[in-house]
Amino acid sequence: MNAANGLLRTALRLAAAGVPVLPLRAGKLPFGNCPACARSACGDRPNMKNAGPCQCPAPCHAWAAATTDPRVLASPAWVPVWHEAVAVAYHPGGAGLTVVDLDNAAAVEWARETLPATRTVPTTRGEHWIYRGTMPSSNAVRPGVDIKSTMQYVRWLGPGAGRMAVLPAAVRALVEKEDTTPAPGEVASSLPARPTWGRSVATGCCHTERYVRTGLERGLALVRARTESGAGSQAFGVARFLAAQHTACPGPCGLAAIGEEIVAAAVSVGVPEPYARRAVANGLETAVERAV
Rank of each mutant, 00 (worst) to 15 (best):
N104P: 07
Y90D: 08
V86P: 01
P70K: 01
V72W: 01
V99T: 14
P92R: 08
A66E: 09
A85S: 14
P70F: 09
R71S: 15
G93H: 02
L102F: 08
L73Q: 01
V88T: 01
A62K: 06
W82V: 11
A85Q: 07
L97S: 03
G96P: 06
L102D: 14
A89V: 02
A62W: 10
L97N: 06
Y90I: 12
R71W: 04
A64S: 12
V81H: 05
V100N: 13
L102N: 11
G93E: 10
H91S: 15
A95Q: 10
L73F: 06
T98S: 10
D103M: 09
H91T: 08
T67K: 02
H83I: 01
G94Y: 04
L102Q: 12
D101T: 05
Y90N: 03
L102H: 08
G96N: 07
T68C: 15
N104C: 12
L102I: 04
W63P: 01
W78D: 09
S75D: 13
T98C: 11
W82Q: 06
V88A: 09
R71C: 09
A62C: 04
A66K: 00
V99S: 13
E84H: 09
V86G: 13
N104H: 12
D101E: 07
A77D: 09
V86I: 06
P70S: 10
V99Q: 14
P80L: 03
H91E: 13
A62T: 06
L73N: 14
Y90C: 14
D103W: 05
D69Y: 06
G93S: 02
V99H: 12
A85F: 11
P80F: 02
L73D: 06
A65E: 02
S75T: 11
Y90G: 15
E84V: 01
P70T: 15
A74K: 02
G93Q: 04
V88W: 00
V86S: 13
V72M: 05
A64Y: 05
P80G: 06
T98N: 14
A95N: 07
L73V: 14
V99M: 03
W78R: 03
V99Y: 08
L73G: 15
S75N: 06
V99L: 12
P92N: 12
D101S: 15
H61C: 15
S75V: 12
Y90F: 15
V79P: 00
P80M: 08
P92G: 12
N104I: 00
A89C: 07
P92C: 13
V86F: 02
T68F: 11
W82T: 11
V100C: 10
W82I: 07
D101V: 03
W78E: 12
T68G: 15
G93D: 03
T67M: 08
D103A: 14
H91D: 15
P76R: 11
V81C: 04
A66S: 11
Y90T: 12
V79E: 04
A87S: 15
N104D: 14
A74G: 13
V99K: 09
Y90P: 08
A95R: 10
V81K: 02
Y90S: 13
A95P: 05
A95F: 13
T68L: 07
P80C: 06
G93L: 10
A74M: 12
T98K: 03
D103K: 09
Y90H: 08
P76E: 09
N104K: 03
A62Y: 04
V86R: 10
